[in-house]
Nucleic acid binder design. Structure first.
Lengths: 240, 240
DNA sequence: CGCTGCTTTGAAGCCCTTCAAACCAGGTGG
DNA sequence: CCACCTGGTTTGAAGGGCTTCAAAGCAGCG
């Protein structure tokens, strides 16, 4: 059920049988959610975190003027609000982009893990630090990259992260969100994102259509984005 | 010596004598660094983290075209690369903005803490999650706020964070960096930042001059920035 | 006293936004 | 089975915020 999460951990660290049991034992109720549903509201005290079993989520903040900025996109196997274990409440909200299933992980169980399993604790800590690394890369995009580079970079990131959980290959992946939602990740208007996607299409790099990204030239897409996957820490932790 | 770091922890959590001893025992060599010196290079494997005793640091990434984006500014008492404990190498570099003193904290000591002191481990984990929260708020600035709002927001953030360690009050704080460096935080050109600072000055909100920020109207500055300090998690962890 | 690095100002240009409307696909009901 | 509606996509035209390029101003220092 949470194979994706385990696969993601095993990519970087071995998991002992005991640690795997602890993770499985920490999993509580599973909930199915429709698309575009906010299920964690900023500022609300939380007593459990969640694992995303399948679907796609967004961390976002609303602005006073009604604008919205998505600060992170989550894919299967992510722990979208693991950080609420230490933060107690979140500075942002969490919504589904697509229909999703999430599993609840009570903070009490996480606390037990921190008391008994330091290695697993560090693996979980790593997961939140990886999120932070992705936040930093988005800062680079938002601060310095042009519109076309931002769009290309996010598509490269999603391709790389989805590939880890077997939901993407070099030819593309499912991305059943609207251009408006995509633009909320990039700090751009939907209108301009539409033009940029046309440019990427006409350059033969990739096509975002009908809820799917079809990549014509992954190397070219990565080159225009200046994409370097180092910030995703895809290598094993012990030899990094 | 690391009073600032302890003060920052105590703001949110109590520290037992044992925990304080563990922190002090983890501190190793202290190093003094000149301004504008990169002492952690991206991609290099690290065996220790650092605590910033005094001074100001920046996390940054260089772009292919020579541009630079600062993704985080650190003040006294911060653990600027605590996340290298789980990440092993960093996706970004770390430089001094001002002359600084840092203390090295070997990862081996941190590992001992994770084995023996789950509560202190969670406090350290929190520190890295707070950094991530600040990264998210910078994404909001870079993605959605206007130039004047970005500048005002960063000044508000620094005021609030420096106040915690006794280096700022409502009337201002020392900020001995150049406008060019400030602009590298904001994703703007130095020229435009200069104009924006003039606007803030002429509005009577604040003045950034001679390495010092003098705040004329903190409430007004916060209003123009739409600054909400919730993301800084300044309250106690047990009652949040 | 002139060098150096930072700040400030001006003018022109461009990337992206804003506003507006047409287009298109899928679903619903007559 | 087509008319209609709705939400998303696409295109056009005008405008604005920020960048770029250029140069002057200014303070600290050898």
């Amino acid at each position: 059920m949470i194979e994706a999460a385990l696969a993601k951990i095993r990519l970087r660290d071995d998991l002992s049988a005991e640690e795997e049991t602890a993770i499985l034992g920490a999993i509580g109720e599973v909930v199915s959610l429709p698309a575009r549903h906010t299920f964690v509201h900023r500022g609300v005290r939380l007593s459990y975190s969640t694992v995303l079993i399948d679907g796609m989520l967004a961390r976002y903040k609303d602005m006073a003027d009604g604008q919205r900025q998505i600060t992170h996109v989550h894919v299967s196997g992510d722990f979208p609000d693991l950080h609420s274990f230490t933060l107690k409440y979140l500075d942002h909200s969490l919504m589904t982009l697509t229909p999703s299933r999430i599993a609840k992980v009570p903070h009490a169980r996480l606390e037990e893990i921190t008391k008994k399993m330091p290695r697993l604790t560090r693996i979980l800590w790593f997961a939140t630090n990886l999120d932070a690394s992705i936040h930093r890369e988005w800062e680079i995009s938002l601060g310095r990259r042009t519109a076309i580079q931002r769009a290309a970079h996010l598509l490269c990131e999603l391709q790389a992260r989805l590939q880890v959980v077997g939901q993407a290959d070099a030819s593309g992946f499912a991305l059943p969100i609207t251009q408006a939602e995509f633009s909320e990740c990039l700090g751009l208007t939907p209108v301009h994102v539409n033009r940029v996607l046309r440019d990427l299409r006409e350059a033969g790099l990739c096509e975002f259509r009908g809820g799917r990204v079809s990549i014509g030239d992954l190397a070219g897409l990565r080159a225009t984005a200046e994409f370097d996957p180092a910030y995703l820490y895809l290598g094993r932790r012990d030899e990094a």
